[in-house]
Structures are given as C-alpha cells and as structure tokens.
Design a protein around this nucleic acid. Sequence first.
RNA 1: GGCUCGUUAGUCUAGGGGUCUAGGACGUCUCCCUUUCACGGAGAAGAUCAGGGGUUCAAAUCCCCUACGGGCUACCA
Length: 526
Amino acid sequence: MTDAATRRVRTRYAPSPTGSPHVGNLRTALFSYLLAKRFGGDFILRVEDTDQTRLVPGALNDIIQSLRTMGMMYDEGPDVLSVEKLDKEKYGDVPSELLPTFGGDHAPYFQSQRLPRYREVVDTLLAEGKAYYAFETREELDAQRAACEARKIPFLYDRKYRDYDMAEAKGRVEAGEESVVRFKMPLTGAIIAEDAVRGELSWDATSQDDFVILKGDGYPPYHLAAIVDDHDMQITHVLRGEEWIPSYPKHIELIRALGWEAPVFVHTPSILGPEKKKLSKRNGAQPVTGVIFDKQTNEPIYGYVDYEGILPEALLNALVLVGWSPGDDSEVMPRDEIVRKFDISGISASPGVFDKDKLIWMNGLYIRELPQAVLAQRSLPYLKRAKLVPESPTEEEMAYIVQVVALEQERIKTLAETPDLTEYFFLPLPNYLEKSADKWIRKGTAKAYLSNLAAFLESYSDWTHDGLEEAVRQIGAKHERERGDITHPVRVALSGRENGPGLFEMMAVLGRERVLARLTHAVQNV
RNA sequence: GGCUCGUUAGUCUAGGGGUCUAGGACGUCUCCCUUUCACGGAGAAGAUCAGGGGUUCAAAUCCCCUACGGGCUACCA
C-alpha cells in the first residue's frame, strides 16, 4: 500500500478569486469537503491568486461566505492575519468574524504569499536541467500562434531555448532581460496518468509542449503553483473539474520531475447549464452566497441574497446528487448520511445538467421539516425586504409572523416566495385579484352573505378553528350555500385570492379585528 | 483544426456480461383526499440503454468505428 493510501486524507478547494462561486464550483468544493469528512480528514481552502491582473474585489469574501453558508467551512485556510495583509483595493474586504484566527500549519494559503517557495522549486528544476529560461516576448509568441492559426495547424511552442546555454541564459536574465522559465516535457513516448473515476488517461508526448512555470512577473502559473502547494500541503486527493484533464500531463510530469508522490487525481464531471454548456456566469450561473444564520438564535448575521431562497441544506443535498450517487436509490439524505455514504466510487464521469425543478422540490421538502419558529426566522429577511414586517419586530409581532408562516409552510417552495404567499396577513387590506373578486364577491348574493356573516361574527365568541367553522357554515347554510360557495367568498374577502391555507385557521390567525374589517371592506368597496 | 473526456426517458441517476420484458427520483398527466391551493396517497405516459460493427451460448454492461455533445488548445485558472 502506498503512503497516500494510508495517510490522513487531506483535500482542498482551490478557487481563484476572480468571481463569485456558482454551483459548479461549489459542487467541486462539496465533493472535496465530503471526501475529507468521510475519512475524518482535513479540508483546505487555498486561494489561487497568481494572476494578479484578474482579481475581482469581493470574490474572496463570496468564496468564504459560500463555504460558511453551506456548512463546509475549511479546516485550514485564510485567517484574519493573512487576509489583513491583502490589498483591499484588489481583493475587497472579508469580515473578520468569517475568518478563523489561526489558518493552519501550512500557511500561507494565498499563493501570492508563497512566491519564494515557487522560486525555490523552479531553481531546483533549472539546476537539474529540467527547466530552462526562454526569451520570447508575448508579442512574438502571439505572432507565432496567429501564424499557426492562419495555416490551420496546431500551435506548440517551438522549444527554441530548450538547449540554450545555461550560463548565457543566466547572463541575459541578470542583465535584466525579461524571461520566463519553461519546463522540459518529454519529447517522445506516451504520458500516462491515472484518474480515479476514468481509469488510465494517456497522451502522446508530441502533443505537449514546454509550458511556462515561471512568468515574467515572477509569479508562477497555476500548473506549477498548484503542484507545489498540493505537495507542500500534503494533499492526498485532488478533486477538480474535468476541464483540467487536458493539463493533467503537465502536472504529472512536473510531479515526476520533482520526484514527488502524486496525490490521487479525481476529475469531477462538469455541471452543465440548461444549454448543455459548462456552467459559467455567461450562461446564467448565479453566484451562491447566502444568508448566514447564527447557530443559536437563528438570526441572520449577514444580509446576503442567497440562491433564490434555497436552504443551504437543500442545496447541498440537491448538489451532491449531480455527478454522485450513493449507489442505491436514496436521494433525500441528511448531511451526516451523505458524509457517511460519500465515496469516490460513486462519482460519475459524465457531465450533468443541474435540475432546478428538483432543487426546488427538495427545498420544499426541507422547508416542511423546519420547526415553525426556524422557518419564520429564515423567512424574515425576505419579509423585511418586501417591507411586510418591521425591521425589528416586537415579540408580539414575531409571534404573529410565526403563526402566519406556519400556515403557509407546506406551500412554500423557496423562501423567496414567502412574501407573496403571506402578504395579505401583513397588509392593512389584501390586494384583491380582479378575477377572484369578480367570481366570488361581485357575483350573485355574495355581498349579502358576507355582510350577514360580518354581523354575526361581530359578537361571536368562539374564535377558534372549530368555532369559526361552525359559525361560517351556519351563516352559509342560511343563505342556502354549499361547499365552495360557503368558503370561497369569505376566503377572497379576507385574502384577496382563491388559494391559501385552510379558511378557518386563516381566520383564527388573522383575528377578529382584521376579519371584520376585511369583510366590511369587501362588501362596501370591492 | 489538433488533443481529450463523455453518451441509460425532457432532467438527475441505478446498473459493470445472464435475475433488465432496464429500477428510483424530478418534471408531465390522471384519479383519490379536501372549503381552495398545497401536502399526502394511488396510477399512467415517457428509454429500440446515441448508431453500426465485433467478442460471447448470452451485451445497457467488454472491444472497435462513426455520430453527437463537452472541455482544453495563454507568461488565465
């Protein structure tokens, strides 16, 4: 058994802070997180910020925020101190409450803060004749590429400096000439590497070229940095999107040249948008950042807009099912069950479309399982945003909110639709749907019935579900009404619409004052 | 164009040579429950397992070809 198989499992999520994560990114993070947790190992967040020109302020915050929201906080990664050192102009700020005070033993976790180490590795490669300086300018390279494209032949770097005299090269570098360092890839033969879900992958060496491992600006590109860090941070399993497969031969050759042991590589299938294209911001992938709730009080801590009112636990459950299956028919699984069942063998090789409908269905399932008070707390940001409830509800107002939300619980599919579903409970008077008013209030003898009911209810004492049902049915019967003819006019008068919770529990929650006011209003003004 | 990965119903998936006349879930439709909607329950439609060749007594499952789709093809990640 190899060392890697017996070592403590350590996985990593290594995003580049060039944008907010979307479900595709997050799913890769999730798989990494789950694998680590499955085997009691460590999940590491490493920030791949070697391209300083593409940094997007706020991206870092969103990356950390989304991990927190999803309950997959890293065991090692950026901490308060390392984030403080960052240029806020370029990275944006991250609230320190979001960050651990101590990042871990393998700091720094920002590649931009690890430059000396990369330089060291590059120097070793240079000294061993496994890499070389190259002096083409970007413009020259671009011209070569363009020429190849024009002739419709594949462009590969021509390795002009591969055998260039090292002393001479060093002289030019020391003289201040701009240069890059390139890695000597094998010239012939097959490059074979193992992928944990696809098996053996193979490339012909002639399809590869000598890629850059140190850029002109002194930063390493991904290929070098990731390999060095994965080694230094003792990563045992690299889970990354399948878009990395083409550069896998570069990585494996680098690892071999350095004499290191390779981690297990797991290329996860892409998540596709509805157009069957890989998910990206361009085809409608929305960033996943979320409302974060305090564990004790369930109060929202950060006012983020989340993934369309989706509960993190539902998103996690729905997401894990794209590209992974436990092997049996289970789908709705609490997080600890997912952790228990997660394994590389269940990861599929084929890309999948993320099914929004199924997510929403699953979210409804999770919402129905929420205790009423928790559901109310989680709906609160949405209700506040819609200005239906005050910024700081009193205890009494909160109690009403809980009752209201509880009535709609089985109808709520996403938190975002809570305001629409419940607005008539909070508005002074409901917004009457024309169609519903025409059908149930303005037609026939409905108004006489409603006005009679209002009069009766004014002095009615049994203001409970059963009591109210008794009262309404009694008055309804007097007007020779049956079934829907009894309830619908009342329902529309009270809520302005035809659909909603059971009429009598609705009346009980609304209370006498609101009920009478609305009945009267419906008779007189609708 | 080159390289590379993939291909089971609209979607996510199970299955890895015989038990597959292909199982589950979302979505769709029908019915039941019911004061409405929803929930819940029962059922239905929907897949020649991309196509074609092999291998085998036997293939969704193994091999090859083709088609289609994705990805990569930077001093981006």
